[in-house]
């Protein structure tokens, strides 16, 4: 498996009429997760989130690809 870079957000049982909806659903939840947190707390939430998602993905080759893209652009 290689890193998915095409739009991939979806939710079981949900039918989307507009292509932008699943991505917007995700993004709203992401911002909501940080609501009312200090910058420091948010940074910690982000770190924890990355660890959780990384474990879920599991495939270290995929994770390396993601880490490389993430770092290359900043």
């Amino acid at each position: 498996m290689s890193l998915k870079l095409e739009p991939n957000f979806h939710e079981p049982g949900k039918r989307y009429v507009r292509a932008f909806t699943p991505g917007d659903d995700f993004y709203e939840s992401l911002i909501e997760t940080h609501r009312d947190l200090s910058d420091e707390q948010s940074a910690m939430v982000n770190a924890r989130l990355i660890l959780l998602l990384a474990n879920h993905v599991g495939d270290i080759a995929v994770l390396r690809e993601a880490m490389q893209i993430a770092r290359a652009g900043v």
Binding site: L5, Y27, G73, V74
Partner: peptide
């Protein structure tokens, strides 16, 4: 920043 190269990020640009 990711949207220029990666379609998934373009879909998130609002």
């Amino acid at each position: 920043g990711l949207a220029g190269d990666h379609p998934f990020a373009r879909a998130l640009v609002n």
